Amino acid sequence: MKAAIFRGAGKIAVEERPEPTIQEPTDAIVRIVRACVCGSDLWYYRGITPHPEGSIGHEFIGVVEEVGAEVRTIKPGDFVIAPFAISDGTCPHCRAGFHTSCLRGGFFGQGVEGVAGQAERTRVPQADGTLVTVPGTHFSDEVLASLLTLSDVMGTGYHAAVSAGVKPGDTVAVIGDGAVGLCGVLSAHLLGASRIIILSRHPRRQELAREFGATDIVRERGEAAVEAILKLTDGVGADAALECVGTNEANQTAFACVRPGAIVGRVGVPHEVEIPAETTFYRNVGLRGGPAPVRAYLPTLLEAVLSGKINPGRVFDFTTDLDHVAEAYAAMHERRAIKSLLIVDRL
């Protein structure tokens, strides 16, 4: 089979790899239909975060081809969404809703042979706890794109909003206009926020943010952005902030732009971030978030997509196939694309 292989910073190759096989009785083999490139993959591509050479990619949807002897809820022929984290669904952390910390879990795309999302097929450990079956068999390309976002990016934006405690009537600041930030806007809107302020300098991203529910665009950065948000909120600050970048500047902006008592929902993978202890302490500003437990949110978000309430697949503005995965990475790296989609096979 063909698979995307990470060969070092700036190097993504398509190579032939052995077909994955059942190794544990809790495994499943999935034929991948759609996959994509994640913003976190770019940290590896840019050489900022280390990644072992080998399989890469953690966002995919597909069709189950084979299951292990102990798999009970998933069967061959099922159309499934795979959250980016592997989880058994039964350990104490999974039962508490934090599947990304599963005691028997892990993550796709970490260099393990045959356990990655940018490939024609993959092995899914802990299939019962990880995979979610999608009812139905006939979906448009548009719906398939939205279903693909539920493997990570939409669930991550939603996690930021949930972690920040967004509720009806809130004013929410979204730091970051990438696919996660845009899904954060959509999530804040879904949770009832009445005013959504996003930091963005990119016209296409601003347009999509408004379509997703953003009411205000702030083009400034750093202290100037904080001043702009405070001005928009009559000096009070936002009721919640969604930090969807991971840089120190993005975090400092999020902490500074919210009112006393607010919570920052953080989902950007932190890189050299300093938490301002004194200023957050004296203003009672909280911090929650981390790797999104997408599996916990999937039932809610799946219903929202299938009912037509949300269409997060619109974050994909570059489409290619697996053979051209290197171009999919380059398009995002060069900010020619918000998010790249890979058509791997038909449903």
Rank of each mutant, 00 (worst) to 15 (best):
residue 49 T to R: 14
residue 51 H to I: 14
residue 51 H to S: 12
residue 53 E to I: 09
residue 54 G to V: 14
residue 56 I to G: 02
residue 56 I to R: 10
residue 59 E to D: 01
residue 60 F to D: 03
residue 60 F to W: 06
residue 61 I to M: 11
residue 63 V to K: 08
residue 63 V to F: 01
residue 66 E to S: 09
residue 67 V to P: 12
residue 67 V to C: 10
residue 68 G to A: 13
residue 68 G to N: 09
residue 69 A to E: 12
residue 69 A to M: 01
residue 69 A to P: 02
residue 72 R to M: 15
residue 75 K to I: 08
residue 75 K to Y: 00
residue 78 D to W: 04
residue 79 F to N: 00
residue 80 V to F: 10
residue 83 P to L: 12
residue 83 P to C: 10
residue 84 F to M: 12
residue 84 F to I: 05
residue 85 A to Q: 11
residue 86 I to P: 05
residue 86 I to D: 03
residue 87 S to M: 05
residue 87 S to G: 08
residue 89 G to S: 00
residue 91 C to K: 00
residue 94 C to Y: 00
residue 95 R to C: 01
residue 97 G to C: 05
residue 97 G to R: 03
residue 98 F to W: 09
residue 99 H to Q: 08
residue 100 T to N: 11
residue 100 T to V: 13
residue 102 C to G: 07
residue 103 L to T: 06
residue 105 G to T: 10
residue 107 F to G: 02
residue 108 F to A: 09
residue 109 G to A: 04
residue 109 G to Q: 09
residue 109 G to C: 13
residue 111 G to S: 04
residue 111 G to K: 04
residue 111 G to D: 06
residue 113 E to G: 02
residue 115 V to N: 08
residue 119 A to S: 12
residue 120 E to D: 11
residue 121 R to E: 10
residue 121 R to W: 12
residue 124 V to W: 03
residue 125 P to D: 09
residue 126 Q to T: 06
residue 126 Q to L: 15
residue 126 Q to A: 14
residue 127 A to M: 03
residue 128 D to H: 04
residue 128 D to G: 07
residue 129 G to R: 06
residue 130 T to S: 09
residue 131 L to T: 04
residue 131 L to H: 08
residue 132 V to F: 14
residue 132 V to Y: 08
residue 132 V to Q: 04
residue 133 T to E: 05
residue 133 T to W: 01
residue 134 V to P: 03
residue 137 T to I: 09
residue 137 T to R: 15
residue 138 H to A: 11
residue 138 H to F: 10
residue 140 S to C: 07
residue 140 S to N: 02
